[in-house]
Design a protein around this nucleic acid. Structure first.
Lengths: 206, 206
DNA sequence: CAGGATCCTGAGTAAAAGCTCGGATCATGC
DNA sequence: GCATGATCCGAGCTTTTACTCAGGATCCTG
């Protein structure tokens, strides 16, 4: 693998990455052939292999970029939320919108890539570390809302993130009879109700 | 494809299906070769192709079986819950346990298979129909609990199922620092808090 | 127990797809 | 203008893998 030096080459690499995303999205990882990706990118197969040592490298780059983008979006959300305080409901709503925006148009691309065992363990570790940092950040923000009464805040933040991701991935998939607005409303309700509920095993509300 | 007649052949088919689940689980769909599946099953490759017309057929069978098993488990839960009334919390706990039990040991198998575009659209439709029926069934049960105050009950049931599935799939994955019991507790809390919360856009609790 | 049905075998085929490599084309500094 | 390196090309090599088929083993029934 060689790193691009000239501007022309950098553009080529971008085209290949974009094409890879489209082709994987359309045909899946196995059926998304490197020749097809090169063709879609408008470059020859040789050029592709000059910048990516193997097909997997394309998937790795796509996952890495998605993780980085989501993390940046979350950090921006944290900054927005702490600098300009609002209600818990508004904060959660913009969080859900952030998650949704980060996945729209990509359907199940990253789910699919992560489900493919050929991807090295290092990529999965990268995702998990990002999720851990996300849970830390979310817990930090939630701590500033008095309505949030979960006893294990860090744990609750993790569950909240995973529930949001799960719902988002589901909603992004093939058409379902639920408007985007309604989906966001319900998801915000779910998060708010969960986070505002107290400890259960200790003192079951009676 | 031929349907097995003798007992011996039925056992062979079962062995192949079991082997396919293991090999797909281990190597993924693309790298899970039919030869490897046959070898693991202890039969020749020719025998495999006598009962399954193509590699995809194996994945289809695995998904169909999983969907059927989950649907049966859910129906059993419904029957248990309506015949032997308990608290909402207990009912939700056994629901979460059911979902968890249905996925344990299979890691991300079915996620992976469903993420593979080669699987015919008919399989995905099958999953969606099952999920729709599950939402109907769950909504029916929830209606019997006065604490459940969601305005759009059918919609809430759908979200509850998807959130549960999302969390379950996450938890089943690679080792994470969360005990099974704690996970179930948190998930039950989440579901109960959500379902017991009222309409939000109408009258925001103040 | 004969003969047909069912089941199993596994070397071999054909197609597909990842990847290489020798050389052409372009950009840049002197 | 030319030399050097960066970039790009694409036919084809090599390996892999889904799948076939002709024939042998096993089971069942009349």
């Amino acid at each position: 693998m060689k790193t691009p030096i000239q501007e022309r080459a950098r553009a080529t690499v971008e085209h290949v990455i974009t094409a890879a995303a489209q082709v994987f999205e359309e045909h899946g990882f196995a059926a998304g052939t490197t020749n097809r990706i090169a063709e879609r990118a408008g470059v020859s197969i040789g050029t592709l292999y000059q910048y990516f040592p193997a097909k997997e490298a394309l998937a790795v780059v796509l996952v890495e970029r998605h993780v980085a983008a989501m993390e940046a979006a979350l950090n921006a959300w944290v900054a927005r939320t702490v600098s300009r305080p609002a209600s818990l409901r508004e904060a959660l709503r913009s969080l859900v919108e952030t998650a949704l925006a980060g996945h729209e148009g990509q359907s199940r691309l990253h789910d699919m890539l992560l489900a493919q065992p050929p991807l090295p363990a290092r990529v999965r570790a990268l995702v998990e570390e990002a999720e851990a940092r996300a849970a830390d950040a979310l817990a930090g923000v939630l701590r500033t809302f008095p309505q949030v009464r979960r006893p294990e805040l860090r744990r609750a933040a993790t569950l909240a993130i995973q529930a949001t991701l799960g719902l988002t991935h589901w909603f992004i998939g093939p058409e379902r009879g639920l408007a985007r607005g309604a989906f966001v409303d319900e998801t915000v309700d779910l998060l708010q109700a969960y986070l505002a509920s107290g400890a259960p095993p200790a003192a079951p509300a009676r």
